[in-house]
């Protein structure tokens, strides 16, 4: 029973990280029907920014809490700026092109960002400091759940609640929903579509950066390539939940995380990916639009 609980918590932690990244995929897809393959790289850049800021802030003698907060904030701001710029450079000029062109542009951006970090930083694995302190009250239970895992779960839940609030109850959220439903109609009623798209990229990138900081601090290492695997898994999660749907992305990510955790725990980690992608195939057979995806009639 304890083992089962540990696997659930491990799966949820991993799923939360996937969810933070998957939200970026799904929001962008919902609004401009683009699979933003450079999104995994934004996550990686978030982790790198946090690493640089942590080293600098620690040198300057800031205390632990200040380091965590400032480094995460820096990562979020810097990654958001990247997300914003990537959209302006690589996707906006292609807004009226066929859907394949921005896709290729996205892949190009992904390769560019990876190699940029490779050249500007290093190809080696870098140690990432353990930003999250060991809580005293959790020590007796740390064989079940460690402090970083708790922090990841709490931070992710908070971020999701804030996002839901933003989308459901603010003017910006309303504009985003309107743009997702029908971009031309939204434009006609006076929504600044370009601004909405930019905001979407910024929010998605901020969440990915948060995920990057949390997971890097949890596993203690980063390199320029970490965005690839995480990006693919998060993309899978977004498709699993129904790409374009925000609750779908979260659900898909948690389902994926739990599936991987249980596959490893009860079968073998050799087949972790087999189970993850097997589940994806199975769900897409019965629900082609994903778990919460809506089947929309194609407008001819």
């Amino acid at each position: 029973m304890e083992y089962f609980l540990e696997l659930i918590l491990g799966g949820l932690t991993r799923g939360s990280i996937y969810a933070l990244i998957a939200l970026g995929y799904t929001m962008v897809y919902g609004i401009i029907q683009l699979i933003n393959f450079a999104h995994g790289e934004i996550y990686m850049i978030g982790a790198f920014t946090a690493l640089i800021f942590t080293s600098v802030l620690t040198l300057l003698g800031f205390n632990e809490i200040a380091v965590i907060v400032l480094a995460s904030l820096a990562a979020v701001i810097y990654s958001s700026a990247y997300g914003y710029t990537v959209e302006k450079i690589a996707y906006m000029p292609l807004r009226r092109a066929s859907r394949l062109s921005p896709l290729i542009s996205a892949i190009g951006m992904s390769i560019f960002l990876q190699n940029y970090v490779l050249l500007a930083q290093t190809s080696d694995f870098l140690p990432f400091p353990n930003l999250i302190p060991e809580f005293e009250f959790i020590k007796p239970y740390r064989h079940i759940i460690s402090s970083p895992e708790i922090v990841i779960l709490i931070t992710t839940s908070t971020a999701m609640i804030l996002l839901t609030f933003l989308i459901k109850f603010t003017r910006t959220g309303k504009a985003m929903r309107a743009t997702a439903q029908d971009r031309n109609m939204a434009m006609l009623v006076g929504v600044n579509v370009n601004r909405v798209i930019s905001i979407t990229f910024v929010i998605g990138s901020a969440l990915a950066a948060l995920g990057g900081v949390l997971i890097a601090s949890h596993v203690g290492q980063i390199n320029f390539y970490i965005g690839f695997v995480a990006g693919i898994k998060a993309f899978t999660a977004a498709v699993l939940g129904g790409i374009g749907s925000i609750p779908g992305a979260v659900l898909g990510a948690l389902v994926l995380g739990l599936t991987e955790s249980f596959a490893t725990g009860y079968v073998s980690s050799d087949y972790e990916d087999v189970f993850a992608f097997g589940l994806l195939v199975l769900i897409l057979i019965f629900k082609p639009a994903g778990i919460l995806g809506r089947v929309t009639a194609r407008k001819v």
Partner: peptide, 16 residues
Amino acid sequence: EGVTPGAVDYSAVVQK
């Protein structure tokens, strides 16, 4: 067991 290189974390394997 074989672990997947580059996976986000290895908590399930570690529990195992």
